[in-house]
């Protein structure tokens, strides 16, 4: 649309040539991208920011931190956003769209969005597919455990959790509810069942912290999102990771969003397009075990083993009622603090 308008203007005035977007010069412009630090930042620099800077002359700046911080930032800067692109999780993306903080996915502006598996661009663009499985200590579980195995009495008080609220915590509540024969719409069953595991030995603030304790058998298991955990396992011989069957792993999806009314919308769309490209998505799968959302990505058998990469696999995953869970957040946080942390 914009280009048509531009051609019309050129026809009328006959002054400026209209170059296609890819050849446009953005030198002096800065694109601000909010994402997680570590491997994700490294891959994005390598496969997305680098090529984008080379192509456009713009500069890409990363703002590192948690996705909740970014959601707060967007809400606070609603009238005057400073971020252009932000990475959020599966439940934050629809919430952000509903509140008008992000632009709705648009395959016309971001061509690679058309290759994303159908139905996944909910709220924002689907970036990667991961599932909540079990990281476990091999000295305590000789065989990969099922969810129900965590409830064996000898492991009481030996779990580790991420700080709540988080997709790990909510996912674990949904699993506990199903182990008790209900689902997340029955929070009483979910909390009662999860409380049977005892207060966690550790609420971890870094992956190394929990993995070293698990390696030594001080922590029996932890519900964890596939991806980095799997890529970290080569450093820890005593830890395994499994996608359980009953119920299947909980689907967690990372999303990439274009911030509404951001200063650099065109650069933001180009960034997202590169992030969804076959090349970037394949690198995510090979290096981080993050499942590609781009349907055109082809992985070898060994690469695909630890990665959720087909719609059939996605169908086997446990899909939670996130809008419901989000609406319960405040009450569930109080219950988690009291009933699960035992405080």
């Amino acid at each position: 649309m914009k280009r048509i308008a531009c051609y019309a203007a050129v026809a009328a005035v006959g002054l400026f040539p209209c170059l296609p977007a890819s050849a446009q010069d953005f030198s002096g412009h800065t694109l601000t991208v909010g994402t997680w630090g570590g491997d994700i930042e490294r891959l994005l620099r390598e496969h997305v920011a680098g090529p984008l800077e080379a192509k456009t002359g713009a500069k890409v700046e990363f703002l590192l931190g948690g996705s909740g911080d970014r959601l707060s930032k967007m809400a606070a800067e609603r009238n005057n956003p400073t971020m252009d692109v932000t990475f959020q999780n599966i439940y934050e993306a629809p919430l952000a769209l509903k509140d008008g903080l992000v632009a709705a996915p648009d395959a016309a502006a971001v061509p690679n969005a058309a290759d994303v598996w159908p139905g996944m661009n909910e709220g924002c663009y689907a970036m990667s597919l991961v599932g909540l499985g079990i990281a476990y200590s091999k000295s305590l579980f000789p065989e990969p455990p099922e969810w129900a195995d965590l409830w064996q009495p000898e492991f009481k008080g030996m779990m580790a959790y991420a700080p709540y609220p988080s997709s790990e915590g909510d996912g674990m509540l949904a699993v506990a509810a199903r182990v008790a024969g209900a689902d997340e719409h029955n929070p009483d069953a979910a909390f009662a069942k999860l409380a049977e595991l005892g207060a966690p030995k550790l609420t971890y603030s870094s992956l190394d912290e929990v993995l070293s304790l698990m390696d030594s058998g001080e922590i029996a298991a932890a519900p964890m999102i596939s991806g980095y955990v799997i890529s970290n396992l080569e450093n820890y011989e005593g830890i395994g990771f499994v996608f359980p069957q009953d119920p299947g792993p909980v689907l967690v999806r990372d999303m990439v969003c274009q911030v509404a009314n951001s200063p650099e919308p065109e650069l933001a769309q180009m960034f997202i397009d590169l992030a969804l490209s076959v090349e970037t998505q394949a690198a995510y799968a090979k290096e981080l075990n993050f499942g590609p959302t781009n349907s055109k990505v082809e992985l070898s058998e060994s690469e695909a083993a630890n990665v959720i990469n087909t719609p059939e696999e996605v169908a086997s995953l446990l899909q939670m009622d996130w809008p419901y869970v989000i609406a319960q957040r405040s009450a569930w946080t109080d219950r988690w603090n009291k009933e699960i942390m035992g405080q």
């Binding site: 948690g66 707060s72 700080p163 966690p200 405080q343």
Partner: peptide, 21 residues
């Protein structure tokens, strides 16, 4: 490790994770 509840960590939990400002 989440086991010592202080007022500031409660405020952080509500502001940054629950987003109940």
């Amino acid at each position: 490790q989440g086991k010592v509840v202080t007022f500031a960590s409660l405020a952080y939990q509500q502001a940054a994770l629950v987003l109940d400002w």
